[in-house]
Design a binder for these strands. Structure first.
Lengths: 345, 345
DNA sequence: ATATTATCCTCAAACGTTTGCGTAAAAAAA
DNA sequence: TTTTTTTACGCAAACGTTTGAGGATAATAT
């Protein structure tokens, strides 16, 4: 294993000082053209690359940002990452991705590591377990340490920092309203336990839509899926009721796709007997049969926006920085699972 | 913005030397218990974290590895990453993910950056554009620089390094054989242009299966999709033929899912009139109707294996390291899109 | 010839760690 | 009391880079 070439070695080769080499490689006018060119040629030949650890240590910045996401096997998060990457690269930043796997402990570990000077800022979507524990001291610590932080999608109200969230309330409202518009009479929701904020808020949008239109709120139409157990079984129950729903709003893609599978197994006609709305950016929706109508989360835009906010804070010089919460509006991607005659909007 | 706390600042606070602080924090017996405890308490209170740039510079290693993948919005790659993360974290390594977006230029850029000392090793799946250009000098350079490299999935024969690939030939063979076993008579393949190696090799498996069983090779049954144009249109042509196929092997999930959509639009019964096999690890397959039979790529296993090989090379002391190519065997995940009576195996 | 300026290079500190070695003072042994 | 040992800390170099200040030599101006 050849050891890497450094300024020192080049300097020794030409019998000049390290600073001469450094300056030559940066095309400094302080170095004669002849020496400069010879050094540059040599460096190029030996594929010299400045050691970024050293450079970063010296410059006290790394041009790298860290991203902590709960899962990567999830289309929404990969879209967000693409958006982050896009803006980051445009601005000469690299992206380091870490996974929390929805675990509090891994989230803390990752943050500890990122806090040690390798990144100029951090973008995080909170792990479910952290939301459940409501233990946010690692975030407070991060901010205390002066490291710029942006939260996206799953945010924490009590933490003061830049945020970008989707309009979950509006999305839930829109989805439910749409089901009403295609004349569904009993509209169910399949959501997460309340500690998952986005699920809770989407549900609130659902409730608002019902209330506004004088639909009763019926507990038996609200399924809170516990992912520790079989999802299909929990959703099944909705169809076993005496008076099953004719419209379902599922707060994510997997729940929605599962509903389709169940409905098909029971020979229910989609969307005529049961209409289905999802909430997703995902790929599955396009390929189910029927394809799935969904609230579009605009993950890519979200990533872009998060990175922009982070850059904003990184580049801000003064101490009176003002945090911003950007809300990404949702809209509906209507496909086949709700394709009935639309009555009104 | 508070500036971060360092050994120097702690040292000044206690009026001791930097080394005393460093040693105290590492519980060195060289430091008296009293001083040790006071320093540790102080450091903990102020949330001291060693600057990893400095530590890494000093130790000449970073406990971080870099991964370059062509796309992240692709379930196979996310699975691989999960596998890599798993083994990496188990061994105290962090993972830095970079996207090449299938672009040669971005691949080179990412490698340049990773080569600058921030990682102890690199795992790469080659970008399509690079395969097309057949320009691999950045890989050669990397190896020349002595940085451990593992290629996965899309490999380069002429580059000498650790590799982990799926048995694409075997997969293609198995898939085709299975279609024959459910009595398909005209079996088509939807693949990539030949410069995408995995597509090419899967096709070779397909051809082998046909040949072995005295099926003719028919050019009109081989579709090479150019992703620059509309995928659906290109695949459609298969069905417009005078004598359309009754079995289709698609080399990836999107192609396969697209076939389902097309078949449905044409009211072809799956699998009776047309059976479909995919090649994927993806989520879509489970949720299409009918669900999709596919060659399982074992992405997670692949990631684990790649990371293990990388660690192997990183930890190898002597200079006689021997490279290894691990082949991940494929198997079939049979679902509804080929659910006919199986004749024999 | 002397003073001034331009050219080309080196010095040295700094970024924040780690760690082998040296050493003063205190404690123990002779 | 003197010698030896132990305890508890500091020194300084090293990792690889950047950069302002300074210095020697050569070129130009006076």
């Amino acid at each position: 294993m050849k050891s890497k070439i450094t300024l020192k070695k080049i300097a020794k080769e030409f019998d000049v000082s390290i600073s001469t080499v450094s300056k030559a490689l940066k095309d400094s006018h302080e170095i004669s053209e002849e020496v400069r060119e010879r050094i540059k040629a040599f460096a190029k030949y030996y594929n010299y690359k400045p050691n970024s650890l050293a450079v970063n240590l010296r410059n006290q910045k790394t041009k790298t940002i860290g991203v902590i996401i709960p899962q990567i096997v999830h289309h929404f998060f990969t879209k967000v990452i693409s958006g982050i990457e896009h803006i980051a690269n445009e601005n000469g930043y690299n992206v380091m991705i870490c996974l929390s796997n929805e675990s509090y402990e891994k989230e803390v570990l990752n943050m500890d590591m990122l806090e040690s000077g390798i990144v100029d800022g951090i973008i995080v979507s909170v792990a479910k377990e952290t939301e459940e524990k409501e233990d946010y001291k690692h975030f407070k610590q991060l901010i205390d340490n002066g490291l710029p932080l942006v939260l996206f999608d799953r945010e924490i109200p009590e933490i003061n920092c830049n945020k970008v969230i989707v309009d979950d309330f509006g999305g839930g409202f829109l989805a439910t309203k749409h089901l009403m518009n295609i004349s569904c009479k009993r509209i169910a929701i399949i959501t997460t336990p309340d500690h998952v904020m986005v699920g809770k808020i989407r549900k609130e949008g659902y409730i608002q839509a019902l209330t506004e239109n004088n639909f009763p709120i019926q507990e038996e139409l609200i399924i809170k899926v516990n992912e520790k157990y079989d999802i299909t079984n929990q959703i099944q129950k909705l169809f076993d009721q005496a008076n099953p729903p004719d419209g379902i709003f599922a707060v994510n893609e997997i729940y929605a796709a599962t509903v389709i599978k169940i409905a098909q197994k029971r020979n229910l006609k989609i969307p005529d007997e049961i209409a289905i709305m999802g909430f997703t950016d995902g790929l599955i929706s396009e390929y189910t049969t029927p394809s799935l109508s969904a609230v579009d989360q605009h993950g890519y835009t979200m990533g872009e926006k998060a990175m922009e906010l982070l850059l904003d804070e990184i580049n801000y010089q003064d101490s009176d920085y003002k945090y911003n919460t950007t809300i990404i509006e949702t809209d509906l991607k209507l496909r086949e699972s709700t394709k009935k005659q639309i009555i009104s909007y």
